[in-house]
Each structure stands twice: as structure tokens, then as C-alpha cells.
């Protein structure tokens, strides 16, 4: 996992040479490709998730990704399939809970939390049962960029394309339903169906992001870029674009850092994303302070 311990490569600030060096390894090319797909998909879905305040559902989905991947490893299937299967299944379960526990946010989150705890316990069992090369659950929990195969990249591309197409198809009614549920319903928008459909998209996006950051750090790509963008702008289209760009930047910078440094990928991706969020908050604070100074005294709101 700690590649830099075994490779003598050093970052030179000659970016072209550095990138050429990294991309001489097929697994790094795959990692960059996978990172790009994941950042775009997780960013777009994450923006809606933050707007809908469903981060807890997102967190549960990401935790469920762990037993899925562990089980997949145990029975000898690709972890990508494990992530996807577990997340989509959990999305259906949460959508079902939502349906039955009508508008009871407290009941819903308690039930979701119950599912989450059980999923985590199952994951631990599967990892213990598998006494092979895994060396503990670390890679599944905190992410790795080693061993992303071309086949996995292809799967990520297909799933990502489906998610983005669906999001483009029902993004606008979803925005309406998310910001203004009752009026959207009155205008004939199928609010409940959209909510369930969105959970499935969220499941797919979480499964994708889990491949890069591991299931515990999924929020680095799912929440942080979206939260940062929403600090910076209230325009929907600009916000979505910004989210995707921020996610992409965090992911690629994280990959570069993890290639040259002996520390895990998940840490770097999360750190870059977090730094962006802190900068955005500072920018807003400074902008607010400047705005207050520029206005005549007493005219502030």
C-alpha cells in the first residue's frame, strides 16, 4: 500500500516529467482515470445530497460498502461488484424505510443507524473470515489506488455514465422536489419516486467513490466538494460545476501526493478537499467583512 517505500521516485516540480513518470505505470493511469470518473459522479450526486440534507443516508451507504467489498473479496469476486451490490441494496432498504416511516425523520435516522451498525459488524466478520493477503480491513476502509484494473475502470465508466444520464434527466424536478417539496408535489412532480430514485443514484455514486477513498472516507468526494461549492455560490449550475472541479482537483492532487509520499491516498484526498473547504469559509468571512466595511456605517443588514 505504501508505494513510496518501495519506489525511489521523488517529486521534481517539473510537472510534465512527474506526470510522465507516474503514467509510466499502468496502475497509475487507471487510478487517474478512475479518480476522474469518481470525482465527477460523486460531485454531481453529492451536490444534490447536501442540498437535500441526506448526508446521514450517504454515510450509511458508504459504511455498507465495506461489508460488500469484504464479502466480495471473501468469495473471490471483484471488490467493485461488492461495493456496487451492497450500496444499491442498502439504497433500496433505506428507500423502503423512508416509505414506511412517513416523514418521521427521527424514526428514519434511527432505523438507518441500526442498518449501519449491523453492516459494519458483518464487514468485520467477513474480513476476519478472509485470512488471505488482505492484511486487515485497512484498504477497504481507507482506500487504495493500487490494483485498479482496466476492467474496474470500464465498470466505473459505465455506472458513472448511467448515473449522470439519469441525473441529467430528472435533475430539475429533483431540485424542485428537494428545495420545495409541497409545491413540487402540487405541480405534479412525483416527489416520492424521485426521492427513492435519488437514493439509488446515491448508492451507485457511493460505491464508485469507495474504490478511491475507501468506504470510511467517501465523504471526502461526496460531501466536502459540494459543501465547499455551496459556501461559495448559491447558483445551482455554477455550484454543480464548481463541485465537480473541486472533487477532481482533490482526487488528482491526492493521487500525486500519495504516489510520492509514503502515506495513504485517502488521507491526501480528504486533506486537499478539507483545505478547499477551509479556504472557502475564509473567503466568505473575508468577503463578508469587506462588504461590511465598504458599506456606510449602520447600513449593514
Amino acid at each position: 500500500m505504501l508505494l513510496a517505500e518501495t519506489t525511489p521516485y521523488a517529486f521534481t516540480w517539473n510537472l510534465v516529467a512527474d506526470v510522465r513518470e507516474m503514467w509510466s505505470f499502468p496502475f497509475m493511469v487507471n487510478a487517474f482515470r478512475a479518480g476522474a470518473i469518481v470525482a465527477v459522479v460523486a460531485g454531481a450526486v453529492g451536490w444534490f445530497m447536501v442540498l437535500r440534507r441526506q448526508t446521514f443516508a450517504g454515510h450509511t451507504l458508504s459504511v455498507v460498502a465495506f461489508p460488500g467489498a469484504a464479502l466480495a473479496t471473501l468469495i473471490g469476486v471483484s471488490t467493485a461488484v461488492g461495493y456496487l451490490g451492497a450500496c444499491l441494496l442498502a439504497a433500496v432498504v433505506i428507500a423502503g424505510l423512508r416509505e414506511s416511516g412517513r416523514s418521521g425523520v427521527a424514526v428514519e435516522s434511527a432505523a438507518t443507524g441500526t442498518v449501519q451498525a449491523f453492516a459494519l459488524a458483518c464487514g468485520f466478520l467477513f474480513v476476519t473470515l478472509y485470512k488471505g493477503m488482505l492484511g486487515g480491513p485497512q484498504a477497504l476502509l481507507f482506500g487504495t489506488f493500487l490494483g485498479i484494473t482496466t476492467g474496474q475502470v470500464a465498470l466505473l465508466t459505465v455506472v458513472g455514465a448511467v448515473v449522470l444520464t439519469l441525473l441529467a434527466a430528472f435533475g430539475r424536478p429533483l431540485l424542485f422536489a428537494s428545495s420545495d417539496r409541497e409545491v413540487a408535489a402540487a405541480r405534479g412532480v412525483p416527489v416520492r419516486a424521485l426521492g427513492a430514485g435519488f437514493l439509488l443514484l446515491l448508492g451507485a455514486a457511493t460505491a464508485e467513490a469507495s474504490q478511491i477513498t475507501g468506504s470510511l472516507l467517501v465523504f471526502a468526494l461526496l460531501v466536502v466538494p459540494a459543501a465547499t461549492a455551496q459556501v461559495l455560490t448559491a447558483r445551482p449550475v455554477l455550484g454543480l460545476a464548481l463541485t465537480v472541479l473541486l472533487g477532481l482537483a482533490a482526487c488528482w492532487l491526492g493521487l500525486i501526493a500519495a504516489f510520492y509520499q509514503p502515506y495513504p491516498l485517502g488521507f491526501f484526498v480528504t486533506t486537499f478537499a478539507f483545505a478547499g473547504y477551509v479556504l472557502a469559509q475564509l473567503t466568505r468571512a473575508v468577503r463578508g467583512a469587506v462588504g461590511r466595511v465598504a458599506l456606510p456605517t449602520g447600513a449593514t443588514s
Binding site: A168, A169, F170, G171, R172, P173, L175, F176, S179, D180, V183, A184, R187, G188, V189
Partner: peptide, 10 residues
């Protein structure tokens, strides 16, 4: 959204 929020697609 009051004007076009119910429309599908982009």
C-alpha cells in the same frame, strides 16, 4: 422552479 421545475431533462 415554479415555471420549469416540473420539466424533465436539461
Amino acid at each position: 422552479l415554479g415555471l420549469d421545475g416540473h420539466r424533465w431533462g436539461l
